[in-house]
Design a protein around this nucleic acid. Structure first.
Lengths: 249, 249
DNA sequence: GAGTGGTCTAGACCACGCA
DNA sequence: GCGTGGTCTAGACCACTCT
Protein backbone atom coordinates (compact mmCIF):
# COMPACT_ATOMS: atom_id res chain seq x y z
CA UNK A 1 0.00 0.00 0.00
CA UNK A 2 2.76 2.40 0.94
CA UNK A 3 4.49 1.46 -2.30
CA UNK A 4 1.37 2.45 -4.20
CA UNK A 5 1.35 5.78 -2.45
CA UNK A 6 4.97 6.45 -3.31
CA UNK A 7 4.31 5.48 -6.91
CA UNK A 8 1.41 7.91 -7.07
CA UNK A 9 3.57 10.63 -5.54
CA UNK A 10 6.34 9.94 -8.02
CA UNK A 11 4.01 10.00 -10.96
CA UNK A 12 2.21 13.12 -9.80
CA UNK A 13 5.37 15.15 -9.60
CA UNK A 14 6.99 13.53 -12.62
CA UNK A 15 10.52 13.63 -11.27
CA UNK A 16 11.45 12.36 -14.68
CA UNK A 17 9.39 11.29 -17.62
CA UNK A 18 11.60 8.63 -19.17
CA UNK A 19 10.31 5.09 -18.68
CA UNK A 20 12.34 2.94 -16.33
CA UNK A 21 13.70 0.57 -18.94
CA UNK A 22 14.92 3.51 -20.99
CA UNK A 23 16.63 5.13 -18.05
CA UNK A 24 18.42 1.88 -17.31
CA UNK A 25 19.31 1.54 -21.00
CA UNK A 26 20.78 5.04 -21.12
CA UNK A 27 22.74 4.44 -17.95
CA UNK A 28 24.27 1.20 -19.20
CA UNK A 29 24.93 2.65 -22.65
CA UNK A 30 26.74 5.55 -21.07
CA UNK A 31 28.79 3.20 -18.93
CA UNK A 32 29.78 1.16 -21.97
CA UNK A 33 30.70 4.22 -23.99
CA UNK A 34 32.66 5.67 -21.10
CA UNK A 35 34.55 2.42 -20.68
CA UNK A 36 33.17 1.43 -17.29
CA UNK A 37 32.39 -1.85 -19.02
CA UNK A 38 34.93 -2.71 -21.68
CA UNK A 39 34.83 -5.06 -24.63
CA UNK A 40 34.40 -8.64 -23.43
CA UNK A 41 33.31 -7.61 -19.93
CA UNK A 42 30.27 -9.24 -18.38
CA UNK A 43 27.46 -6.90 -17.44
CA UNK A 44 25.86 -7.50 -14.02
CA UNK A 45 23.35 -10.33 -14.22
CA UNK A 46 19.70 -9.55 -14.79
CA UNK A 47 18.85 -10.38 -11.20
CA UNK A 48 21.58 -8.09 -9.93
CA UNK A 49 20.33 -5.26 -12.09
CA UNK A 50 16.83 -5.86 -10.74
CA UNK A 51 18.05 -5.58 -7.18
CA UNK A 52 20.29 -2.58 -7.75
CA UNK A 53 17.77 -0.51 -9.66
CA UNK A 54 14.63 -1.68 -7.92
CA UNK A 55 12.79 -2.95 -10.95
CA UNK A 56 11.57 -6.35 -12.07
CA UNK A 57 13.15 -8.66 -14.59
CA UNK A 58 10.98 -7.85 -17.60
CA UNK A 59 11.98 -4.22 -17.20
CA UNK A 60 15.65 -5.09 -16.99
CA UNK A 61 15.28 -7.42 -19.96
CA UNK A 62 13.64 -4.66 -21.98
CA UNK A 63 16.62 -2.42 -21.30
CA UNK A 64 19.08 -5.18 -22.24
CA UNK A 65 17.13 -6.01 -25.40
CA UNK A 66 17.50 -2.40 -26.43
CA UNK A 67 21.25 -2.63 -25.86
CA UNK A 68 21.37 -5.78 -27.98
CA UNK A 69 19.53 -4.02 -30.79
CA UNK A 70 21.92 -1.10 -30.54
CA UNK A 71 24.84 -3.48 -30.95
CA UNK A 72 26.32 -2.82 -27.50
CA UNK A 73 26.01 -6.23 -25.92
CA UNK A 74 25.45 -9.84 -26.79
CA UNK A 75 23.59 -12.24 -24.52
CA UNK A 76 24.63 -15.81 -23.88
CA UNK A 77 22.26 -18.13 -22.12
CA UNK A 78 23.87 -19.53 -19.02
CA UNK A 79 26.72 -17.03 -19.14
CA UNK A 80 25.51 -13.48 -19.17
CA UNK A 81 25.53 -10.29 -21.19
CA UNK A 82 28.85 -9.52 -22.79
CA UNK A 83 29.90 -6.11 -24.06
CA UNK A 84 30.87 -6.33 -27.71
CA UNK A 85 33.65 -4.58 -29.49
CA UNK A 86 32.86 -1.05 -30.42
CA UNK A 87 33.11 -1.43 -34.18
CA UNK A 88 36.50 -0.62 -35.59
CA UNK A 89 34.71 0.27 -38.76
CA UNK A 90 32.06 2.91 -38.78
CA UNK A 91 28.89 1.54 -37.33
CA UNK A 92 26.57 3.96 -38.95
CA UNK A 93 24.01 1.30 -39.63
CA UNK A 94 23.02 0.91 -36.06
CA UNK A 95 20.83 3.36 -34.29
CA UNK A 96 23.58 5.68 -33.16
CA UNK A 97 24.76 8.58 -35.22
CA UNK A 98 28.25 8.54 -36.58
CA UNK A 99 29.88 10.43 -33.78
CA UNK A 100 29.56 7.74 -31.16
CA UNK A 101 30.52 4.90 -33.45
CA UNK A 102 34.09 5.20 -34.56
CA UNK A 103 35.95 3.39 -31.82
CA UNK A 104 39.55 4.44 -31.42
CA UNK A 105 39.68 6.78 -34.37
CA UNK A 106 39.42 10.52 -34.10
CA UNK A 107 36.26 11.74 -35.73
CA UNK A 108 35.77 15.37 -36.63
CA UNK A 109 32.88 17.15 -38.24
CA UNK A 110 33.35 20.00 -40.65
CA UNK A 111 30.43 22.17 -41.70
CA UNK A 112 30.23 22.74 -45.44
CA UNK A 113 27.11 24.82 -45.23
CA UNK A 114 25.48 26.03 -42.03
CA UNK A 115 21.86 24.97 -41.64
CA UNK A 116 19.55 27.20 -43.61
CA UNK A 117 15.84 27.22 -44.29
CA UNK A 118 14.81 26.53 -47.87
CA UNK A 119 12.30 24.72 -50.05
CA UNK A 120 12.48 20.96 -50.31
CA UNK A 121 14.23 19.85 -53.51
CA UNK A 122 12.02 18.69 -56.37
CA UNK A 123 11.91 14.89 -56.67
CA UNK A 124 13.06 14.28 -53.13
CA UNK A 125 14.46 10.81 -52.46
CA UNK A 126 11.72 9.87 -50.01
CA UNK A 127 8.07 10.70 -50.15
CA UNK A 128 7.06 13.77 -48.12
CA UNK A 129 3.80 14.48 -46.35
CA UNK A 130 1.86 17.64 -47.13
CA UNK A 131 2.70 19.12 -43.75
CA UNK A 132 6.39 18.60 -44.39
CA UNK A 133 6.18 20.13 -47.85
CA UNK A 134 4.37 23.22 -46.58
CA UNK A 135 6.82 23.80 -43.76
CA UNK A 136 9.91 23.85 -45.92
CA UNK A 137 13.14 22.26 -44.83
CA UNK A 138 16.33 22.96 -42.96
CA UNK A 139 19.28 22.04 -45.11
CA UNK A 140 22.84 21.44 -44.00
CA UNK A 141 25.96 19.84 -45.40
CA UNK A 142 28.72 18.32 -43.36
CA UNK A 143 31.91 16.41 -43.91
CA UNK A 144 33.08 13.81 -41.42
CA UNK A 145 36.79 13.21 -41.09
CA UNK A 146 38.35 10.14 -39.50
CA UNK A 147 41.92 10.85 -38.43
CA UNK A 148 41.73 14.02 -40.52
CA UNK A 149 40.86 12.16 -43.71
CA UNK A 150 37.42 12.99 -45.16
CA UNK A 151 35.24 9.88 -45.16
CA UNK A 152 31.63 11.07 -45.29
CA UNK A 153 29.89 13.81 -47.14
CA UNK A 154 26.53 14.15 -45.44
CA UNK A 155 23.56 16.21 -46.61
CA UNK A 156 20.82 16.48 -44.01
CA UNK A 157 17.26 17.65 -44.53
CA UNK A 158 15.03 18.35 -41.53
CA UNK A 159 11.43 19.51 -41.71
CA UNK A 160 11.20 23.10 -40.48
CA UNK A 161 8.71 22.29 -37.74
CA UNK A 162 9.17 23.61 -34.23
CA UNK A 163 12.95 23.68 -34.07
CA UNK A 164 13.57 27.10 -32.49
CA UNK A 165 17.01 28.65 -33.04
CA UNK A 166 18.15 25.53 -34.88
CA UNK A 167 20.03 27.42 -37.57
CA UNK A 168 22.03 29.39 -35.01
CA UNK A 169 23.44 26.44 -33.15
CA UNK A 170 27.05 25.33 -33.26
CA UNK A 171 27.36 22.07 -35.16
CA UNK A 172 31.11 21.96 -35.61
CA UNK A 173 32.33 18.71 -34.03
CA UNK A 174 28.99 17.99 -32.44
CA UNK A 175 26.61 15.20 -33.17
CA UNK A 176 23.30 16.12 -34.75
CA UNK A 177 21.63 13.30 -32.82
CA UNK A 178 22.97 14.71 -29.57
CA UNK A 179 21.76 18.22 -30.36
CA UNK A 180 18.32 16.92 -31.18
CA UNK A 181 18.22 14.92 -27.97
CA UNK A 182 19.55 17.55 -25.60
CA UNK A 183 17.97 20.67 -27.04
CA UNK A 184 14.71 19.40 -28.45
CA UNK A 185 14.07 16.12 -26.59
CA UNK A 186 13.94 14.33 -29.93
CA UNK A 187 15.20 10.76 -29.86
CA UNK A 188 15.93 8.68 -32.92
CA UNK A 189 13.78 5.59 -32.83
CA UNK A 190 14.51 3.91 -36.14
CA UNK A 191 14.41 4.38 -39.86
CA UNK A 192 14.98 3.06 -43.32
CA UNK A 193 17.99 3.20 -45.54
CA UNK A 194 18.90 2.43 -49.12
CA UNK A 195 22.39 1.52 -50.24
CA UNK A 196 23.97 1.82 -53.61
CA UNK A 197 27.42 2.09 -55.13
CA UNK A 198 27.95 5.00 -57.49
CA UNK A 199 30.86 6.76 -59.16
CA UNK A 200 31.90 10.00 -57.45
CA UNK A 201 30.80 13.08 -59.35
CA UNK A 202 32.68 16.37 -59.45
CA UNK A 203 31.28 17.65 -56.17
CA UNK A 204 31.67 14.44 -54.19
CA UNK A 205 35.22 13.90 -55.39
CA UNK A 206 36.07 17.43 -54.29
CA UNK A 207 34.63 17.03 -50.80
CA UNK A 208 36.05 13.56 -50.21
CA UNK A 209 39.38 14.39 -51.87
CA UNK A 210 39.26 11.43 -54.21
CA UNK A 211 39.44 10.97 -57.96
CA UNK A 212 36.34 11.54 -60.02
CA UNK A 213 34.38 8.34 -60.82
CA UNK A 214 35.91 6.45 -57.95
CA UNK A 215 33.25 4.15 -56.42
CA UNK A 216 31.59 5.61 -53.34
CA UNK A 217 28.91 4.19 -51.13
CA UNK A 218 25.67 6.13 -51.32
CA UNK A 219 23.13 6.02 -48.52
CA UNK A 220 19.69 7.53 -48.46
CA UNK A 221 18.19 7.49 -44.99
CA UNK A 222 14.81 8.26 -43.56
CA UNK A 223 15.15 8.71 -39.81
CA UNK A 224 12.21 8.42 -37.46
CA UNK A 225 12.05 10.03 -34.05
CA UNK A 226 10.15 9.95 -30.81
CA UNK A 227 8.43 13.24 -31.69
CA UNK A 228 5.19 12.43 -33.38
CA UNK A 229 5.34 12.63 -37.18
CA UNK A 230 8.80 14.16 -37.05
CA UNK A 231 11.18 12.40 -39.42
CA UNK A 232 14.27 13.72 -41.11
CA UNK A 233 16.40 12.68 -44.01
CA UNK A 234 20.02 12.21 -44.79
CA UNK A 235 21.87 11.65 -48.00
CA UNK A 236 25.34 10.34 -47.48
CA UNK A 237 28.37 9.63 -49.65
CA UNK A 238 31.15 7.57 -48.19
CA UNK A 239 34.66 6.76 -49.28
CA UNK A 240 34.95 3.16 -48.14
CA UNK A 241 38.52 2.59 -49.22
CA UNK A 242 39.86 2.75 -45.66
CA UNK A 243 36.73 2.44 -43.56
CA UNK A 244 34.01 -0.05 -44.39
CA UNK A 245 30.61 0.71 -42.97
CA UNK A 246 29.45 -1.97 -40.61
CA UNK A 247 26.43 -2.93 -38.63
CA UNK A 248 24.57 -5.75 -36.99
CA UNK A 249 21.23 -7.23 -37.90
CA UNK B 1 -4.67 -27.00 -11.73
CA UNK B 2 -6.01 -28.72 -14.80
CA UNK B 3 -4.19 -26.16 -16.91
CA UNK B 4 -0.96 -27.10 -15.17
CA UNK B 5 -1.57 -30.73 -15.94
CA UNK B 6 -2.21 -29.99 -19.62
CA UNK B 7 0.93 -27.90 -19.75
CA UNK B 8 2.95 -30.72 -18.26
CA UNK B 9 1.43 -33.17 -20.75
CA UNK B 10 2.21 -30.83 -23.62
CA UNK B 11 5.76 -30.32 -22.53
CA UNK B 12 6.38 -33.99 -21.86
CA UNK B 13 5.41 -35.04 -25.34
CA UNK B 14 6.90 -31.95 -27.00
CA UNK B 15 4.24 -31.61 -29.66
CA UNK B 16 6.43 -28.87 -30.97
CA UNK B 17 9.54 -27.27 -29.60
CA UNK B 18 9.19 -23.72 -30.88
CA UNK B 19 8.38 -21.20 -28.17
CA UNK B 20 4.90 -19.73 -28.31
CA UNK B 21 5.91 -16.24 -29.30
CA UNK B 22 7.94 -17.64 -32.18
CA UNK B 23 5.09 -19.79 -33.42
CA UNK B 24 2.81 -16.77 -33.40
CA UNK B 25 5.51 -14.74 -35.15
CA UNK B 26 5.92 -17.35 -37.88
CA UNK B 27 2.18 -17.58 -38.35
CA UNK B 28 1.72 -13.84 -38.73
CA UNK B 29 4.79 -13.53 -40.94
CA UNK B 30 3.41 -16.22 -43.20
CA UNK B 31 0.05 -14.48 -43.35
CA UNK B 32 1.69 -11.21 -44.28
CA UNK B 33 3.85 -12.80 -46.95
CA UNK B 34 0.91 -14.72 -48.35
CA UNK B 35 -1.14 -11.54 -48.52
CA UNK B 36 -3.72 -12.44 -45.88
CA UNK B 37 -2.78 -9.08 -44.41
CA UNK B 38 -1.82 -6.56 -47.05
CA UNK B 39 0.15 -3.34 -46.87
CA UNK B 40 -1.68 -0.82 -44.74
CA UNK B 41 -3.93 -3.42 -43.12
CA UNK B 42 -4.41 -3.46 -39.39
CA UNK B 43 -3.37 -6.64 -37.62
CA UNK B 44 -5.78 -7.93 -34.96
CA UNK B 45 -5.28 -6.06 -31.69
CA UNK B 46 -3.00 -7.48 -29.05
CA UNK B 47 -5.94 -8.46 -26.88
CA UNK B 48 -7.60 -10.25 -29.77
CA UNK B 49 -4.44 -12.17 -30.53
CA UNK B 50 -4.24 -13.14 -26.85
CA UNK B 51 -7.75 -14.52 -26.92
CA UNK B 52 -7.43 -16.30 -30.26
CA UNK B 53 -4.13 -18.00 -29.50
CA UNK B 54 -4.57 -18.53 -25.82
CA UNK B 55 -1.50 -16.67 -24.65
CA UNK B 56 -0.94 -13.59 -22.53
CA UNK B 57 -0.09 -10.12 -23.71
CA UNK B 58 3.67 -10.16 -23.09
CA UNK B 59 3.87 -13.23 -25.32
CA UNK B 60 1.85 -11.57 -28.07
CA UNK B 61 3.93 -8.43 -27.70
CA UNK B 62 7.13 -10.44 -28.03
CA UNK B 63 5.86 -11.87 -31.31
CA UNK B 64 4.85 -8.43 -32.57
CA UNK B 65 8.19 -6.94 -31.53
CA UNK B 66 9.90 -9.57 -33.64
CA UNK B 67 7.72 -8.59 -36.60
CA UNK B 68 8.64 -4.94 -36.06
CA UNK B 69 12.34 -5.84 -36.06
CA UNK B 70 11.87 -7.84 -39.23
CA UNK B 71 10.32 -4.82 -40.90
CA UNK B 72 6.89 -6.39 -41.39
CA UNK B 73 4.74 -4.14 -39.23
CA UNK B 74 4.75 -0.79 -37.53
CA UNK B 75 2.95 -0.13 -34.27
CA UNK B 76 0.99 3.00 -33.50
CA UNK B 77 -0.14 3.66 -29.98
CA UNK B 78 -3.89 4.02 -29.84
CA UNK B 79 -4.34 2.70 -33.36
CA UNK B 80 -2.84 -0.72 -33.80
CA UNK B 81 -0.22 -2.67 -35.72
CA UNK B 82 -0.07 -1.78 -39.39
CA UNK B 83 1.47 -3.96 -42.07
CA UNK B 84 4.14 -2.03 -43.96
CA UNK B 85 5.08 -2.18 -47.57
CA UNK B 86 7.14 -5.12 -48.59
CA UNK B 87 10.24 -3.36 -49.85
CA UNK B 88 10.27 -2.72 -53.56
CA UNK B 89 14.02 -2.74 -53.33
CA UNK B 90 15.89 -5.74 -52.06
CA UNK B 91 15.65 -5.89 -48.31
CA UNK B 92 18.70 -8.02 -47.77
CA UNK B 93 19.64 -6.06 -44.70
CA UNK B 94 16.82 -7.41 -42.68
CA UNK B 95 16.97 -10.86 -41.21
CA UNK B 96 15.41 -12.64 -44.17
CA UNK B 97 17.44 -13.97 -47.03
CA UNK B 98 17.01 -12.40 -50.41
CA UNK B 99 14.34 -14.78 -51.67
CA UNK B 100 11.54 -13.54 -49.48
CA UNK B 101 12.39 -9.89 -49.89
CA UNK B 102 11.93 -8.78 -53.47
CA UNK B 103 8.29 -7.77 -53.56
CA UNK B 104 6.74 -7.95 -56.97
CA UNK B 105 9.86 -8.82 -58.86
CA UNK B 106 10.75 -12.29 -60.00
CA UNK B 107 13.83 -13.54 -58.27
CA UNK B 108 15.78 -16.49 -59.56
CA UNK B 109 18.90 -18.17 -58.28
CA UNK B 110 21.53 -19.58 -60.58
CA UNK B 111 24.27 -21.82 -59.27
CA UNK B 112 27.74 -20.89 -60.49
CA UNK B 113 29.46 -23.63 -58.57
CA UNK B 114 27.72 -26.42 -56.67
CA UNK B 115 28.65 -26.60 -53.00
CA UNK B 116 31.95 -28.39 -52.50
CA UNK B 117 34.12 -29.09 -49.51
CA UNK B 118 37.47 -27.33 -49.43
CA UNK B 119 39.96 -25.52 -47.21
CA UNK B 120 39.09 -22.07 -45.93
CA UNK B 121 40.81 -19.36 -47.97
CA UNK B 122 43.91 -17.78 -46.48
CA UNK B 123 43.22 -14.36 -44.97
CA UNK B 124 39.51 -14.93 -44.62
CA UNK B 125 37.42 -11.80 -44.23
CA UNK B 126 36.22 -12.68 -40.75
CA UNK B 127 38.13 -14.33 -37.95
CA UNK B 128 37.61 -18.09 -37.70
CA UNK B 129 37.67 -20.28 -34.63
CA UNK B 130 40.02 -23.26 -34.46
CA UNK B 131 37.13 -25.69 -34.75
CA UNK B 132 35.97 -24.00 -37.92
CA UNK B 133 39.46 -24.01 -39.40
CA UNK B 134 39.95 -27.70 -38.70
CA UNK B 135 36.62 -28.69 -40.19
CA UNK B 136 37.19 -27.06 -43.54
CA UNK B 137 34.44 -25.24 -45.37
CA UNK B 138 31.64 -25.78 -47.82
CA UNK B 139 31.97 -23.32 -50.64
CA UNK B 140 29.33 -22.28 -53.14
CA UNK B 141 28.78 -19.50 -55.62
CA UNK B 142 25.40 -18.25 -56.78
CA UNK B 143 24.02 -15.51 -58.91
CA UNK B 144 20.67 -13.92 -58.11
CA UNK B 145 18.64 -12.55 -60.98
CA UNK B 146 15.78 -10.08 -60.62
CA UNK B 147 13.53 -10.17 -63.67
CA UNK B 148 16.25 -12.17 -65.39
CA UNK B 149 18.89 -9.48 -64.88
CA UNK B 150 21.82 -10.55 -62.68
CA UNK B 151 21.94 -8.39 -59.56
CA UNK B 152 23.92 -10.35 -56.96
CA UNK B 153 26.99 -12.46 -57.11
CA UNK B 154 27.05 -14.34 -53.83
CA UNK B 155 29.88 -16.46 -52.46
CA UNK B 156 28.88 -18.47 -49.40
CA UNK B 157 31.18 -20.23 -46.96
CA UNK B 158 29.73 -22.63 -44.40
CA UNK B 159 31.74 -24.52 -41.81
CA UNK B 160 31.72 -28.22 -42.67
CA UNK B 161 30.20 -29.27 -39.37
CA UNK B 162 27.33 -31.72 -39.20
CA UNK B 163 25.58 -30.84 -42.47
CA UNK B 164 24.87 -34.31 -43.90
CA UNK B 165 24.28 -34.53 -47.65
CA UNK B 166 24.55 -30.77 -47.95
CA UNK B 167 26.56 -30.86 -51.15
CA UNK B 168 24.02 -33.08 -52.88
CA UNK B 169 21.03 -30.85 -52.36
CA UNK B 170 19.29 -28.88 -55.06
CA UNK B 171 19.93 -25.17 -54.60
CA UNK B 172 18.68 -23.90 -57.93
CA UNK B 173 15.92 -21.35 -57.18
CA UNK B 174 15.81 -22.24 -53.52
CA UNK B 175 16.71 -20.12 -50.57
CA UNK B 176 19.73 -21.19 -48.57
CA UNK B 177 18.03 -19.92 -45.42
CA UNK B 178 15.03 -22.11 -46.14
CA UNK B 179 17.16 -25.20 -46.74
CA UNK B 180 18.99 -24.65 -43.50
CA UNK B 181 15.73 -24.20 -41.64
CA UNK B 182 13.81 -27.08 -43.12
CA UNK B 183 16.56 -29.70 -43.43
CA UNK B 184 18.83 -28.87 -40.55
CA UNK B 185 16.63 -26.90 -38.11
CA UNK B 186 19.10 -24.03 -38.32
CA UNK B 187 17.56 -20.59 -37.95
CA UNK B 188 19.33 -17.35 -38.69
CA UNK B 189 19.34 -15.22 -35.56
CA UNK B 190 21.45 -12.24 -36.54
CA UNK B 191 24.83 -11.21 -37.75
CA UNK B 192 27.25 -8.52 -38.78
CA UNK B 193 27.90 -6.94 -42.10
CA UNK B 194 30.40 -4.61 -43.69
CA UNK B 195 29.62 -2.43 -46.67
CA UNK B 196 31.92 -0.92 -49.19
CA UNK B 197 31.85 0.37 -52.74
CA UNK B 198 34.44 -1.10 -55.09
CA UNK B 199 35.09 -1.21 -58.81
CA UNK B 200 34.03 -4.45 -60.49
CA UNK B 201 36.94 -6.68 -61.35
CA UNK B 202 37.10 -9.03 -64.34
CA UNK B 203 35.20 -11.84 -62.62
CA UNK B 204 32.47 -9.72 -61.07
CA UNK B 205 31.85 -7.83 -64.28
CA UNK B 206 31.49 -11.13 -66.09
CA UNK B 207 28.97 -12.57 -63.63
CA UNK B 208 26.93 -9.38 -63.28
CA UNK B 209 27.16 -8.56 -66.99
CA UNK B 210 28.44 -5.06 -66.41
CA UNK B 211 31.47 -3.10 -67.54
CA UNK B 212 34.73 -3.60 -65.71
CA UNK B 213 35.41 -0.99 -63.00
CA UNK B 214 31.78 -0.08 -62.68
CA UNK B 215 30.99 0.62 -59.00
CA UNK B 216 29.44 -2.34 -57.20
CA UNK B 217 28.30 -2.69 -53.64
CA UNK B 218 30.38 -5.16 -51.67
CA UNK B 219 29.02 -6.87 -48.57
CA UNK B 220 30.84 -9.13 -46.20
CA UNK B 221 28.47 -10.86 -43.83
CA UNK B 222 28.90 -13.02 -40.77
CA UNK B 223 25.63 -14.81 -40.12
CA UNK B 224 24.78 -16.29 -36.75
CA UNK B 225 22.33 -19.11 -36.22
CA UNK B 226 20.31 -20.85 -33.56
CA UNK B 227 22.69 -23.83 -33.64
CA UNK B 228 25.34 -23.29 -31.03
CA UNK B 229 28.60 -21.90 -32.42
CA UNK B 230 27.41 -22.40 -35.98
CA UNK B 231 27.98 -19.28 -38.04
CA UNK B 232 28.45 -18.94 -41.75
CA UNK B 233 29.78 -16.30 -44.06
CA UNK B 234 28.77 -14.62 -47.24
CA UNK B 235 30.60 -12.35 -49.60
CA UNK B 236 28.32 -10.49 -51.91
CA UNK B 237 28.70 -8.19 -54.90
CA UNK B 238 25.70 -6.23 -56.03
CA UNK B 239 24.92 -4.16 -59.06
CA UNK B 240 22.85 -1.37 -57.51
CA UNK B 241 22.11 0.50 -60.70
CA UNK B 242 18.51 -0.71 -60.83
CA UNK B 243 17.95 -2.12 -57.35
CA UNK B 244 19.16 -0.33 -54.28
CA UNK B 245 19.60 -2.45 -51.20
CA UNK B 246 17.35 -1.34 -48.41
CA UNK B 247 16.69 -2.09 -44.80
CA UNK B 248 15.31 -0.77 -41.58
CA UNK B 249 17.16 0.00 -38.37
C1' DG C 1 -15.71 6.74 -23.54
C1' DA C 2 -13.97 2.71 -25.55
C1' DG C 3 -10.24 0.50 -27.45
C1' DT C 4 -5.42 0.51 -28.62
C1' DG C 5 -0.59 -0.12 -27.62
C1' DG C 6 3.21 1.22 -23.72
C1' DT C 7 4.94 0.23 -19.30
C1' DC C 8 5.39 -2.47 -15.17
C1' DT C 9 4.88 -5.85 -11.22
C1' DA C 10 5.58 -10.39 -8.93
C1' DG C 11 5.87 -14.26 -9.42
C1' DA C 12 7.00 -19.23 -12.08
C1' DC C 13 9.53 -22.96 -14.59
C1' DC C 14 12.89 -24.16 -18.13
C1' DA C 15 17.46 -24.76 -20.86
C1' DC C 16 22.06 -23.74 -20.82
C1' DG C 17 27.09 -23.09 -19.22
C1' DC C 18 30.27 -23.78 -15.84
C1' DA C 19 32.70 -25.52 -11.88
C1' DG D 1 24.29 -27.84 -8.36
C1' DC D 2 24.08 -23.27 -9.01
C1' DG D 3 23.53 -19.10 -11.43
C1' DT D 4 22.59 -17.42 -15.97
C1' DG D 5 19.43 -15.94 -19.48
C1' DG D 6 14.79 -17.65 -22.07
C1' DT D 7 9.96 -18.14 -21.79
C1' DC D 8 5.48 -17.37 -19.77
C1' DT D 9 1.39 -16.16 -16.73
C1' DA D 10 -2.11 -12.94 -14.79
C1' DG D 11 -2.85 -9.29 -13.62
C1' DA D 12 -2.40 -3.57 -13.33
C1' DC D 13 -2.37 1.38 -14.76
C1' DC D 14 -1.10 4.67 -18.25
C1' DA D 15 -1.03 7.56 -22.77
C1' DC D 16 -2.72 7.80 -27.07
C1' DT D 17 -6.27 7.78 -31.03
C1' DC D 18 -10.69 7.79 -32.76
C1' DT D 19 -15.58 9.04 -32.71
Amino acid sequence: MFDKFLLLLYKTFKLTDLPQYKKLYELLRKHIEDGVYKEGDLLPSENELCAVHGVTRPTVRHALDTLVRGGYIKKHQGKGSIVISQAKEIGILSIQGTTSAVGENKLRTKIVSQPKIMQWPDHFFFELSDVEKESGCIFMERIRLVNNVPVFYDITYLPNINLPRFCNRKFEDRSLFEILRKNYQIEVTGGQQRFSAIPANEEISKFLEIKKNKPVLHLERRIETSRNNFVFYSCLYCNTEFHALSGTF
